[in-house]
């Protein structure tokens, strides 16, 4: 479902947000520090700062519905993954370097388009909760006439 090229895009260090909803159909959302795509291309792990995870984890544990949006300035390439929750755990120290390296590439990208690293450096990147999702659908979200079209 997530091929090699798309996996590289998702993990290269771009803007990522995770959306959920509660049982009253009210949406919730958090910033994601980084993701790792499983080799099977059907699952991924989203790393969400512990400081914010309470915004979405109760929703995920209650109904399992998730949406992840990815966007890369300056070319505005974007996509959205729909998924279902499979598990959550405390991210380990062994994962920390990879998580922070991906976030660091995101700050470099922002700097390249004129957003100073200092603007986002105060944001929390660790400790994180590792939220594992099963990907159920992928949609193009790049602005333009093909936005919303299924990718896989």
């Amino acid at each position: 479902m997530i091929d090699v090229e798309l996996a590289a895009f998702l993990q290269e260090g771009i803007a990522i947000q995770l959306g959920t909803r509660n049982d009253r159909l009210e949406p919730n959302g958090v910033r994601v520090v980084s993701v790792t795509v499983d080799p099977d291309g059907r699952h991924l792990v989203a790393y969400v700062p512990d400081a914010a995870v309470a915004q979405v984890l109760p929703d995920l544990e209650s109904n399992g519905q998730a949406a992840l949006v990815f966007a890369r300035p300056p070319d505005e390439r974007a996509c959205q993954l729909k998924g279902t929750f499979t598990s959550a755990r405390r991210a380990t120290e062994a994962e920390r370097a990879g998580v922070e390296a991906q976030w660091d590439r995101w700050l470099d990208r922002l700097a390249s388009i004129g957003v100073a690293r200092a603007t986002l450096e105060p944001w929390v990147t660790w400790p994180c909760t590792a939220i594992r999702l099963r990907v159920t659908a992928i949609f193009n979200q790049t602005p333009g006439p093909n936005a919303g079209a299924p990718i896989a």
């Binding site: 803007a15 959306g19 909803r21 159909l25 959302g29 949406a67 949006v69 959205q80 957003v115 979200q141």
Partner: peptide, 20 residues
């Protein structure tokens, strides 16, 4: 508008959506 915002919505069927 210097930093894009994120909009979260949800369908009546309960499927969340996220968009910059």
């Amino acid at each position: 508008g210097l930093i894009p915002a994120t909009l979260f919505t949800c369908s009546r069927a309960g499927v969340p959506n996220a968009a910059f």
